[in-house]
Simulated assay, not measured.
Amino acid sequence: MRMALGNDSFETELILLGLMDQPDLQVPSFFLFLIMYMVTVLGNMGNLGLIILIGLSSHLHTPMYFFLFNLSFIDFFYSSVFTPKMLINFISKKNIISYTGCMAQFYFLSFFGISECYVLTALAYDLYVAICKPLLYNIAMSPKVCSSLMLGSYLMAFSGAMAHTGCMLRLTFCDANTVNHYFCDFLPLLQLSCTSTYVNELVVFIVVGINVIVPSLTIFISYGFILSSILRISSTEGRSKAFSTCSSHIIAVSLFFGSSAFTYLKPSSSVSMDEGKISSVFYTNTVPLMNPLIYSLRNKDVKLALRKILSRRKF
Rank of each mutant, 00 (worst) to 15 (best):
E237P: 10
A4K: 14
N44T: 00
L149G: 02
F257R: 10
M162I: 12
L231N: 07
K314Q: 14
S269F: 05
Y295V: 01
K85P: 07
F31Q: 10
F82K: 13
I309L: 15
V27F: 03
L171T: 03
G166L: 07
S193V: 07
V204F: 10
V214P: 06
K85G: 14
L87V: 01
F67E: 01
L25V: 12
K303Y: 06
T40R: 02
I278K: 13
I309E: 12
F256Q: 05
G49R: 02
N200H: 00
M20P: 08
L151N: 06
S247A: 00
I88H: 14
S279E: 03
R312V: 12
L306Y: 04
T165L: 06
L151Y: 12
F205G: 12
F106K: 01
L151A: 11
P23W: 04
S79C: 06
V27N: 08
S57R: 02
Y264C: 09
G18F: 00
F225G: 14
S235N: 10
I219C: 04
F33Y: 01
F262Y: 15
G238Q: 09
K314P: 08
G43A: 05
E11F: 09
C174L: 12
F256K: 03
A124V: 03
I114V: 08
F77A: 13
Y295F: 10
P63D: 07
I278Q: 12
Y128P: 02
Y125G: 03
M38G: 08
F67N: 04
L217M: 15
V212S: 15
G276I: 06
G166N: 10
V208Y: 12
V208Q: 15
H59G: 00
Y283C: 11
K241G: 01
C194M: 07
S311K: 08
I96D: 03
G101E: 00
A122S: 03
L123T: 02
L60G: 01
G55L: 06
K266F: 11
L149F: 09
D75M: 11
M150I: 04
F243K: 01
A130D: 09
F225K: 13
Y154C: 07
G113Y: 05
M20S: 14
K314D: 11
L120T: 04
Q191N: 15
F30I: 05
M3N: 12
F220G: 07
I131N: 10
N177C: 00
K85Q: 14
S247G: 00
S260A: 14
Y182S: 13
A252R: 06
L5R: 15
V119F: 03
E116D: 07
A140V: 05
F205S: 13
Y198I: 15
C184H: 01
V207E: 06
P63V: 11
A163L: 07
